[in-house]
Design a protein around this nucleic acid. Structure first.
Length: 486
RNA sequence: GCUCCGGUGGUGUAGCCCGGUCAAUCAUACGGGCCUUUCGAGCCCGUGACCCGGGUUCAAAUCCCGGCCGGAGCACCA
């Protein structure tokens, strides 16, 4: 059995060429993992890590992948209705089709049953302490008055909670842990609280909402989750939730944590932070190409495979990492370079007239490293960028694949052959008659003209030579391109 | 303050559990060269790291202790 398992693993690793460390106690075909976001915005690069790592392990062991929405706070972390689909969409786009999708908010009724059982087991009690009062007691390690009520009283109070007899903040259901636990964060934590607020998904169905720790503890059991991979910020969750598992006699899944990820270019990735900046007008929306959301990255032409490799290379260490988008770009470049069509884009254009051009020619240029060709009209009026014009004015340059000229506003034609023009003196150009206005938006923005051939690659990433890779978003009277990366 | 967790080149990572084969892997970044009718890609070369101090041991990046530094949690948020 063990032999079978390890040889199987080796094969997989060879095939996938990647190196996630084996999961503890993982059995081929029996692994169940979940990615559990709160849909209060679209997935960011941070969420993508959870999707990729969990999804990748599931693939590695041919297991089951669950997408679960931990959406049990209609107020503080209020879910956004559209975001549910955004998560599904982006998860699939990243290459991990969920085997099952769970909406915690739709299953609150189920959690009530477990809460009741827990009370009957003496593992939970309804507490009427004010929040600050309890905090003081907790820090001092002192049990509150409500902790030792009879099970009957607790059941009755719980019913009253569910019937709406209490106001917000008046009563909560606490899990009985250990008021002397060395870590105060573990002591008698809240499992249910009262929130009279309509939920974006389930409306007014409930007003007694479970906290993440309760909901997650029950769901992980119901779904038979075998392995939990989550951020280090949730480290205490395991210690809290274990109390529930102990009361019920369940076995807790194997957990592994990873540290927080920071991207140089964006700092800490926080959905609520981005939301505020969008509202403040700093960004145009969740898919603003300057944003590190999955949809924005997709829009600008980052491939799912690049994101996958990027996170795999980051590994799953427990320390906080500071990583640069350059690493993601490098992965992406490796994928797109080969297939991206090459086009000329002239930013900040200068019109140059070539005097004494002997004839107009149809100029053939390579389309991409993997082959193909494109054509430009070699005529006597061309656009080049001001940068090149200023730099090479009065000197000999070659208009790539077209001709050599002595560069001036009225340039002198020298030859069609390249002669001995050196590297670095070959510049890009567009015939005036085939120039289409073009705007580049995103991390780098520019305006100018590109060749009309670009129209063939709408929706694709192209390389504007000597500029950058860009994704052509549309090409009507004007070309709109989203800056991908260099 | 209390409780956890971590510290390998600029950045990320492998190795640490089961000490030697580690004068430490790979990627990215940076520098140089080659090639190419792109300042992209490719190829080659180079720079560059085991937090500090003790201990155990013939031998420590790897084990133990202490320190320092960093992070997380301590919500009726997730």
């Amino acid at each position: 059995m063990i032999e079978k398992y390890s040889s199987c693993l080796e094969k997989k690793e060879e095939k996938r060429e990647r190196l996630l460390p084996p999961l503890e106690n993982a059995e081929e075909g029996k692994v169940v993992m979940r990615f559990a976001p709160n849909p209060n915005g679209p997935p960011t690069l941070g969420s993508a890590r959870g999707i990729v790592i969990n999804g990748e392990y599931v693939k590695m062991y041919d297991g089951k992948f669950i997408l679960r929405f931990d959406d049990t706070d209609p107020r503080t972390k209020r879910p956004v209705l559209e975001a549910y689909d955004w998560y599904i969409e982006d998860t699939e786009w990243l290459g991990y089709e969920p085997d099952e999708i769970i909406y915690a908010s739709k299953r609150i009724g189920i959690y009530y049953k477990y809460a009741k059982e827990l009370i009957e087991l003496g593992g939970a009690y309804v507490c009427f302490c004010k929040q600050e009062e309890f905090k003081k007691l907790r820090d001092a390690g002192i049990e509150c008055l409500h902790r030792n009520k009879s099970i009957e009283d607790n059941l009755e109070d719980w019913e009253s909670m569910l019937e709406g007899k209490f106001k917000e903040g008046e009563a909560v259901l606490r899990i009985k842990t250990d008021m002397k636990h060395p870590d105060p964060a573990i002591r008698d934590w809240v499992a249910f609280r009262i929130i009279y607020e309509s939920h974006p998904l389930v409306g007014d169905s409930y007003f007694v909402y479970p906290t993440l720790d309760f909901e997650s503890a029950i769901e992980d059991k119901l779904c038979e989750t075998t392995h939990i991979l989550r951020g280090k910020d949730l480290a205490d969750s395991e210690r809290r939730q274990r109390y529930i598992y102990t009361y019920f006699g369940w076995a807790y899944p194997i957990t592994k944590l990873w540290g927080r990820i920071n991207v140089y270019e964006f700092g800490k990735l926080s959905t609520s932070g981005i939301k505020r900046e969008i509202e403040a007008g700093k960004y145009k929306g969740w898919d603003d190409p300057k944003l590190p959301t999955v949809r924005a990255l997709r829009r600008r032409g980052i491939e799912a495979e690049a994101i996958r490799r990027f996170f795999l290379s980051l590994g799953i260490g427990e320390n906080e990492v500071w990583v640069s988008m350059k690493n993601l770009y490098a992965e992406n470049r490796k994928i797109i370079d080969e297939k991206a069509s090459r086009y000329f884009f002239i930013w900040d254009p200068v019109e140059v007239e070539i005097e004494k051009l002997p004839e107009e020619r149809k100029i053939k240029l390579p389309l991409s490293p993997s082959g193909g060709e494109r054509f430009l009209k070699g005529e006597n009026k061309v656009l080049i960028t001001r940068d090149d014009f200023e730099k090479f004015k009065g000197q000999v340059v070659r208009l790539k694949d077209f001709c050599n000229v002595l560069l001036e506003k009225k340039a002198k034609f020298l030859s069609f052959e390249i002669g001995n023009v050196k590297k670095g003196r070959i510049i890009h150009w567009i015939p005036l008659s085939e120039a289409v206005p073009c705007k580049v938006l995103g991390e780098v923005e520019a305006e100018g003209f590109c060749e009309k051939n670009v129209g063939r690659d709408v929706g694709k990433v192209v390389q504007f030579e000597r500029f950058a890779f860009c994704k052509i978003e549309n090409a009507n009277s004007e070309v709109l391109a989203i800056y991908t990366h260099q």
